[in-house]
């Protein structure tokens, strides 16, 4: 038996050039050592070297497939409409995040953003009047749903309002946030982001996605606005199911 043991992950990291120098030197020695253990190590190492090369070769032809013209054109269009690049050197330690109000997409959508302020999800003339916002952040029933409903699932409140949990993520300030869709009893619908401030759920964004079929305004870019908001606020990636469950459970403690 060799004195030093190497795991599959050691061998893989060696094959990928990621093994720490001292471990790599020890592995070099082991590979040069006793015939039988060295052979076993070498065989195992070859597995990782070979699979890397094999995967790269096997998927290389996919790069030769022609890219649809519309994708290339979209990049060019976006580049053409973008603000001219500035060459000012930024402070490197600070992540540069474009303020939300600079986003052209967000600006084009009416009734979009209400950061804690009183907000109208529908025009004042829309039939049925504005959707009540009370349940968004303060209603205990909604809060309970936000704290317990796993993403991808739906719940219906006692007043008929339906909530679909979309995802859970961390905001840049590390607050736990949930993206969810709300469909009111009057068919008004919006997608919203609420974050938990340690005490309660606070709504940070609501974007109307569709209104009644009797002709009220339907903004087309609502999900783009949401995307723009998530990018602009440096929202973290959606948590995996188990991470989400743990983070939500922590709120109830």
């Amino acid at each position: 038996m060799s004195a030093v043991e190497f795991s599959d992950e050691d061998l893989m990291a060696y094959a990928d050039g990621e093994l720490a120098d001292d471990r790599a030197e020890a592995l070099d020695l082991a590979l040069a050592g006793d015939a039988a253990p060295a052979q076993r190590l070498a065989q195992r190492l070859a597995l990782f070297v070979d699979t890397r090369g094999l995967a790269a070769e096997a998927l290389r032809p996919m790069l030769d497939e022609p890219v649809p013209d519309h994708l290339v054109q979209r990049v060019r269009d976006l580049a053409a409409t973008a603000q001219p690049a500035r060459t000012v050197v930024a402070f490197p330690a600070r992540p540069a995040v474009r303020p939300l109000w600079h986003l052209p997409v967000a600006a084009s959508v009416a009734l979009a953003v209400g950061l804690g302020a009183g907000l109208m999800l529908r025009g004042p003339d829309a039939p049925g009047g504005p959707v009540s916002l009370a349940f968004l952040a303060t209603d205990p029933e909604t809060a309970q749903v936000l704290t317990t409903l796993a993403s991808g699932n739906a719940a219906t409140l006692t007043d008929g309002t339906r909530i679909v949990a979309v995802s859970t993520f961390r905001a840049a300030d590390n607050a736990l946030c949930r993206e969810y869709e709300v469909t009111g009893a009057t068919e008004a619908a919006f997608v919203s982001v609420a974050c938990h401030d340690g005490q309660a759920w606070q709504m940070r964004l609501a974007v109307a996605t569709s209104l009644r079929d009797d002709g009220a305004y339907v903004p087309a870019g609502s999900l783009e606005t949401l995307d723009a908001y998530l990018v602009a606020t440096a929202a973290g990636a959606p948590l995996a199911e188990d991470q989400e469950a743990a983070a939500l459970a922590a709120l109830s403690r």
Binding site: L45, L47, D50, L54
Partner: peptide, 24 residues
């Protein structure tokens, strides 16, 4: 993933291939 791939592909490299690490 790589162990699963090598099993599926029946890769069983002879030890002589090492230390020729080209592997390509």
């Amino acid at each position: 993933a790589r162990i699963a791939l090598s099993k599926a592909m029946g890769i069983n490299p002879p030890p002589a291939r090492f230390p020729d690490r080209a592997g390509d």
